[in-house]
């Protein structure tokens, strides 16, 4: 029982990342009809917003020591972070909470990146076949990850969670089991809550604002909305930016879980596409539900008891589910009839 609950928790935080990326992918596909293979790169850029913020806050005043030397005989460097020099204890707190602080950088930056990407490149491919959209966005993803690699190197760069959120949660004690039997990293739970908050905010935005209503109308019938004198293209560009922000925030908050490196977007991209297909192309609730479902399934498939019966199942479970869904229900679990069925 303990093991099952632990794997459900695991699946929830993994599923949170899948769901956030898939949500952005679905927003873009639903509004613009574009299959965006650069979406994983947006997740990666978001993660590097956290790295950038940490580097900015860690900028150091470097002085050469007159007494100490390096092992190779040059004067040793004495490094003092500017932030603690300027702000004292508050500077130390800022540095410790750099992952959360970097959200302030990620939101505007990801919006700009999204809008520039859409206006500068993607819009030229609206009328082109999906295969061409995939090729160009995949190429863009490679370019973006190579740029990140040239700036930050190829090695993972650790981003510690704040001390206060670094500990463990004793779910066992909470749920009436023996204390210490089900413990889970606090930050992963924070990530799940954060993802739930973002997903809720996006749904509320689409459901309860005039802007969201127009966007939903545009998704249903773009031409008619255009005929009403509404510049739907501008709103869809904003939605592209919003999808980039969602992916970016997913990346920022994921950095204490997996140390970011330039390739992390690609690691998530294919799985997230499978999530979108399983959930139903263009279906926002489908993307979210499939994200959590596949995250949990993947976790269960990794249990030793399951792997002893089906060796290697953990590596293919998501694809098996995708095959089954495509065969039995091509529009996906919650997809609209007719979308991607021909």
């Amino acid at each position: 029982m303990d093991a099952i609950l632990l794997q459900i928790l695991n699946g929830l935080d993994k599923g949170s990342a899948y769901a956030l990326i898939a949500l952005g992918l679905t927003l873009i596909f639903g509004t613009l009809g574009v299959v965006n293979f650069a979406h994983g790169a947006l997740f990666m850029i978001g993660a590097f917003c956290a790295v950038t913020m940490q580097k900015l806050l860690s900028l150091e005043k470097v002085a050469l020591s007159e007494t100490e030397k390096t092992p190779w005989g040059t004067p040793a460097e004495i490094r003092t972070p500017y932030i603690t020099d300027w702000f004292g204890d508050f500077g130390t707190v800022l540095l410790e909470y750099s992952v959360l602080v970097s959200i302030l950088l990620a939101v505007p930056l990801m919006m700009i990146v999204g809008v520039v990407m859409e206006r500068g490149l993607i819009k030229h491919f609206y009328k082109r076949p999906h295969a061409e959209q995939i090729l160009v966005t995949f190429g863009l993803a490679i370019v973006l990850q190579e740029i990140i690699k040239s700036w930050f190197g190829a090695n993972p760069i650790p981003q510690p969670a704040p001390d206060a959120l670094r500990g463990m949660m004793d779910f066992g004690a909470w749920m009436g089991f023996q204390a210490g039997t089900i413990v889970y990293p606090l930050w992963r739970f924070v990530y799940f809550l954060f993802a739930a908050g973002i997903i809720g905010a996006v749904f509320c935005f689409l459901q309860f604002t005039t802007f969201g209503m127009v966007v939903r109308a545009g998704m249903a019938d773009r031409e008619t909305v255009g005929l009403l004198g509404i510049d739907i293209d501008k709103r869809f560009t904003f939605m592209f930016g919003l999808a980039a922000v969602v992916a970016g925030l997913a990346g920022v908050m994921f950095t204490p879980i997996v140390s970011p490196d330039y390739h992390m977007g690609m690691d998530f991209l294919v799985l997230s596409f499978v999530v979108v297909v399983v959930g139903g192309m263009g279906s926002l609730p489908g993307a979210v539900a499939a994200g959590f479902l596949l995250g949990i399934l993947q976790s269960f498939a990794s249990m030793n008891e399951v792997k002893q019966i089906f060796p290697g199942i953990d590596q293919i479970i998501i694809y098996l589910v995708a095959i089954a869904v495509i065969l039995l229900r091509p529009r996906g679990l919650m997809g609209r009839k007719g979308v991607m069925e021909t």
């Binding site: 093991a3 632990l6 695991n10 993994k14 039997t181 879980i257 690691d267 998530f268 990794s302 590596q315």
Partner: peptide, 23 residues
């Protein structure tokens, strides 16, 4: 106790680590 193979480049190893806790 156990030898578990993990895919290269898995990224998130949490689903392989949790079984260790109660092994």
């Amino acid at each position: 106790v156990q030898k578990v193979r993990t895919p290269l480049g898995a990224g998130d190893f949490s689903q392989y680590i949790t079984p260790v806790l109660n092994s």
